[in-house]
Design a protein around this nucleic acid. Sequence first.
DNA 1: AATCGGTTCAACCGCCCTCAT
DNA 2: GATGAGGGCGGTTGAACCGAT
Length: 277
Amino acid sequence: MGRAPCCDKANVKRGPWSPEEDATLKNYVEVHGTGGNWIALPQKAGLKRCGKSCRLRWLNYLRPDIKHGGFTEEEDNIICTLYSQMGSRWSLIASQLPGRTDNDVKNYWNTKLKKKLLAGKSGFNISKSTINNGCVPAYTNIPTQPAASQPCLPYAETYNLDYSTSQSHISTPFPILSDVGCGFSVISTQNLPLDPVMHFSRPDAVTHLSQLGATLENNHIVTSSREGSSISDSNYLATESKSVSMPGNGYHVEYTGNILMDDQFSYEFSYEFVNGI
DNA sequence: AATCGGTTCAACCGCCCTCAT
DNA sequence: GATGAGGGCGGTTGAACCGAT
């Protein structure tokens, strides 16, 4: 046997909370706490609400440390940085923003921030101040979508990213993956940091260069098969392409690494990887 | 003043993982 | 080990709001 049913769904009130209900819940939690059991709380507090509804109301609205009102530019930067790293993990993103809830962040992203970023990308220019905040890299040369006549080919958009101002860690450079749609490549034009931990939209899949068969030598990302690679151009130390199967994740990474003499590197990932298929 | 379309955001839904039974 | 509720989370909905006409 499991536990008892959480609530009688036929006899609970739904919809917007009244000021009286808010006051009842707030007073009860401030005096008694949640007791670690939201399902039992409404009956104890004298509310005709489902425990889950009480929990949501408390966490998203009634908590004393909730910050109401507009988001600051700094918060914008944090949100877009973290979204670029891990996608729609709203609770994790919200945990980095004191006083903000996952619901707040999610709503803000969906209604304002996404449009703001898309508007910025469409112009191919990000303001200097934004770049200096280390959040959104400077996107240039964004190509158009591939021709309809070649839909079966993996497609890589190219973003030239400028880390020359404030990037001290490589954890922020990636574009908003849900907006990219299918594949991307990244080209860095400065010395790479010593801690090449890379974050993608699926951080559970690839979090370190070693998982792509790459290591760091003298501030250069070097692939494990460097010695066997061909030198295709005087600027290139090595060029290679390889496929990596990610155990347990059921998808496949197409990876191309270029190690350049002037501290540039690039990766290309297939549509399947970027979209987590 | 009325209407309409777009936007916002609180609340709900449904899924997944954990854990008590 | 199996079952099923509790808790947490991301996605979606819809009422309220707002501005344009």
